[in-house]
Simulated assay, not measured.
Amino acid sequence: MRTRRRPRSAARAVALSLAAAVAAPVAWAAGRVLAHPVLPHAIAAPRRVLASSVGRISYYEDDGASGPPLVLLHGAAPTSSAYEVRGLFEAFRSERPVLAFDLPGYGFSEKRSEPFTREQYVHFIEDILADVSRRYGSTVDVIAIGLTGELAGRAVQRKARLVRSLSVIAPTGFDGPPSLTRAALVHARELAAKALDVPFLGAALHRAATAKPVLRAQLGRATRGRAAEELVRYTHAVSHQPSARFTILAAMTGALYDPAVVNDVYDVLGVHALFVHGDHPTCPPAVIDALVLRNSRFARVRIEGAHALPHVEQPFETASALRAFYATLSVKPQLRVIRGERVGRPFEGYRPRGSASHRHA
Rank of each mutant, 00 (worst) to 15 (best):
A255V: 07
A361I: 15
R342H: 08
F89P: 15
Q120T: 02
V14R: 12
K332L: 12
A203T: 09
R32N: 10
D197P: 11
E61I: 11
P104N: 04
S320P: 02
E230H: 02
V198Q: 13
A244T: 03
L129T: 03
F298W: 00
P97W: 02
R56N: 14
T253C: 02
V331M: 05
E114I: 05
A170K: 05
V262R: 03
P285L: 06
P7V: 09
T247V: 09
V38I: 10
V301R: 08
G254A: 06
I288N: 01
L249N: 04
G31S: 07
S167H: 10
L215T: 00
R135A: 15
S167A: 10
C283F: 07
P40S: 08
P68M: 04
A144E: 03
L256W: 02
E84S: 02
I248Q: 09
R336N: 14
G349D: 06
V98E: 11
P346G: 10
D289M: 01
S357W: 14
S58K: 06
L166M: 07
Y106K: 08
R158V: 11
H74L: 04
R351F: 00
Y59R: 01
S133G: 10
E190D: 12
T328A: 14
I125N: 01
V238R: 13
V343L: 14
P352C: 01
Q157Y: 02
R112M: 12
S357K: 15
E119V: 03
R226I: 09
I128R: 06
R6T: 13
V343M: 13
R48T: 15
L274T: 01
D267W: 12
L18C: 15
L291Y: 03
R207G: 02
T235M: 01
H307I: 06
P352D: 00
A77T: 08
G344P: 07
L219C: 01
R164P: 10
S355W: 00
S243W: 15
F200I: 12
G153D: 01
V132M: 05
G354W: 00
V140H: 01
A211V: 08
R2C: 06
L73F: 08
D62T: 02
G75T: 03
S243L: 15
L274Q: 06
V140Q: 03
A160D: 14
V156S: 08
S165V: 04
A152T: 00
L335A: 11
E119C: 04
P284S: 00
G225E: 04
A222I: 12
L205Y: 12
Y350C: 07
I128H: 12
T79G: 02
F298R: 00
E190S: 14
D175E: 06
A15M: 11
R86K: 13
K159F: 05
V214R: 09
E90L: 10
R245M: 14
R4C: 10
A208H: 13
S113Q: 15
A170Q: 11
A29R: 15
L151S: 12
G67Q: 00
I43Q: 06
A228P: 07
V276K: 04
E341W: 07
A65S: 13
S17L: 13
S109A: 08
G55Q: 01
